[in-house]
Amino acid sequence: MADTKNTATLNDETVGMGYLDNLPRRILTLYLPLGVFTFVLLFPFYWMAITSVKPNDQLTDYANYSPLWVVGPTLQHIKYLLFETSYPGWLWNTMIVALCSTFLALAASVCAAYAIERVRFKGASNVGLMIFLAYLVPPSILFIPLAFIVFHFGIYDTKLALILTYPTFLIPFCTWLLMGYFRSIPYELEECALMDGASRWQILTRIILPLAVPGLISAGIFAFTLSWNEFIYALTFIQSSENKTVPVGVLTELVRGDVFEWGSLMAGALLGSLPVVILYSFFVDYYVASMTGAVKE
């Protein structure tokens, strides 16, 4: 796993009073519950993976084959998904939408967080509070009026509709997170730059941003994951198959009638989860930092 030094929000060094317990007691109170938790939390992923490589005849034949294992794994579901459906297109759409909206949100949030935290214009703290309240507005009460607005702007059923609406839930979160990071950068650095005649913009790009790189990574990967996982806006604003994102495409196009092709459905779910899981595995500590950072403030 990545090193814990950069973002030391969680530390492993605390020994606590665990040394007072004996081994059988620890097994019963710690290892057993932990094992059950880990099993339950990970089983759906195992089930997803094993189903996506199972030949069709084994999928529902529980009498002759154990459902928990696979004999002669096959790639037919994945092949079907990649070559006979629009799945690669959905992956591409999701990638474009997630990258663009993350970029837009980060750019806007950096400026906003800097203004609130460091320029300290009149009413900055109120604006900060409003940003926090904006974070609490859930998409499920906004999607109907947004659909109305998106339609009037003439961007209904385009990727642009998603790229422009996703920042509404990304900006409040990223701004809130970056405000915390900017707060930890010493004022003195900024004062020195001001004395040397730097403008606000130069201070932000030359001094603050290089120092806030961990914060930018945290906010960026978190925003990317949130936009990758978004569902309700994509479901509402997109109609045509070629503009769909992975979650919407898998659910609306791969589920046909009464015959569920569980193999390709699970393969679709697995492949659609992989990009965020890979990103997550490289940046675990940044994720934890951004999640707990947002809660702690």
């Binding site: 796993m1 814990t4 969680l10 492993d12 605390t14 020994v15 606590g16 665990g18 040394y19 710690l30 932990l34 938790f37 880990t38 939390l41 990970l42 759906p44 992923f45 089930w47 997803m48 994951t225 990758w228 996982n229 569902f231 992975v246 979650p247 919407v248 898998v250 659910l251 459905l265 699970m266 679709g268 779910a269 697995l270 659609g272 989860s273 965020v276 899981v277 997550y280 595995s281 675990v284 994720y287 934890v288």
Partner: peptide, 28 residues
Amino acid sequence: NENLPFKSFFRAVILLPWVVPTVLSAIA
């Protein structure tokens, strides 16, 4: 929070359900 072996590993895998797109895990 107790002193466990492979703690960072457990912490990492436990967060997985929350990272994976909800719709895709719901399909599972």
